[in-house]
């Protein structure tokens, strides 16, 4: 299983600004996922799981164990049963709610984008019968919705996402340590963060989670202004987390800033790939389907 369908142009309902205009988190999550699924040729989760999906006439080469002998007895024809995959993977979504995530140069902040992405992932996971949980954090764990595959559990996660408040400073590695300590089963971890923390500590934390047997995917959410630094004039830049101010002529320091930012993202990409961790850098102006596709690619490995 995987994102085996053809890529289609992003649909309007995957645009973050349009998603933001929708009423509730549930609606947003459904719109994102349904819109995303419309772009795929077949269901991403048909397979060898427990729940029946359809009958198909036997063809040479089919697994004989899938033959439905009862149908054969009634109709004297060979049919094989197909099942929707039914998994028992524990999926945990870690959403960074630190103050730096509140930054947004456009209509959607990083935190909004991250929460939409988290909601869409949760919806998708729930549709996939995976157990899903949510953990929000800044320098400490702010909220924790336990992992569960119950049908009504998705609502708890969406409500938790609706109630997100901006936190304080960021400490990704601490959240990862707490998560790793709490994990009982191997599963899947999706980290949504701007990773504006100590890169080495973040990578170390992610490696530890990976070491504990979970698949890890990192959604590195950044604002376009953080990447391009389009400012020109002398400006007092105030750090959203520390309150510290730096006065500089933006146009003059742009090249150096962009270079430093690229260096950081390159570090994450290189180190995480080496550790077998998926790294996906997304900008808050990009449609959400890319992130979801990345998730499905990773999910297919389980």
């Amino acid at each position: 299983m995987g994102a085996g369908g053809e890529r289609r142009p992003a649909l309007g309902c995957l645009d973050p600004e349009i998603v933001a205009s929708l009423g509730s988190m549930e609606l947003r999550a459904r719109a994102v996922v349904e819109g995303f699924l419309l772009g795929l040729h077949r269901s991403p989760w048909t397979g060898f799981s427990a729940e029946f999906s359809e009958y198909r006439q036997y063809m040479p080469g089919d697994d004989l164990s899938t033959l439905d002998w009862k149908v054969y007895g009634r109709s004297d024809r060979f049919y094989v049963k197909r099942f929707e995959e039914e998994t028992n993977v524990d999926c945990r979504i870690l959403l960074d709610v630190s103050a730096s995530m509140s930054y947004g140069s456009g209509a959607v902040s990083k935190l909004q984008y991250g929460s939409y992405l988290a909601a869409a992932l949760a919806w998708l996971m729930n549709r996939q019968r995976d157990a899903v949980g949510l953990l929000t954090f800044d320098e400490w764990v702010v909220a924790n919705v336990p992992v569960s595959a119950r049908p009504g559990h998705l609502r708890h996660i969406l409500v938790a996402l609706e109630q997100i408040r901006i936190g304080r400073r960021s400490n990704v590695s601490r959240a990862l340590d707490a998560l790793a300590a709490a994990m009982r089963r191997r599963g899947m971890v999706a980290l949504i963060s701007d990773l504006l923390d100590d890169p080495e500590a973040v990578v170390a934390g992610l490696k530890y989670v990976k070491f504990r047997g979970s698949e890890v995917i990192v959604f590195h959410v950044l604002d376009p202004a953080e990447l391009q630094f389009p400012f020109e004039r002398a400006t007092r830049f105030q750090d959203l987390e520390t309150g510290r101010e730096v006065t500089t002529v933006a146009g003059e320091v742009r090249d150096g800033y962009v270079r430093e930012m690229e260096r950081m993202t390159a570090y994450y990409r290189r180190e995480l790939r080496l550790a077998g961790i998926e790294y996906c850098r997304v900008q808050t102006v990009q449609p959400l389907d890319g992130a979801l596709r990345e998730y499905l690619t990773t999910r297919s490995r389980r």
């Binding site: 400012f231 105030q238 750090d239 987390e241 500089t248 320091v253 800033y257 950081m264």
Partner: peptide, 20 residues
């Protein structure tokens, strides 16, 4: 100079301290 909230100024501090 106008004040502008920004996600993280460490790159400004670190990368351009010499230039500044």
């Amino acid at each position: 100079a106008p004040r502008l909230p920004f996600s993280d100024v460490r790159f400004l501090e670190r990368a351009f301290v010499r230039r500044d």
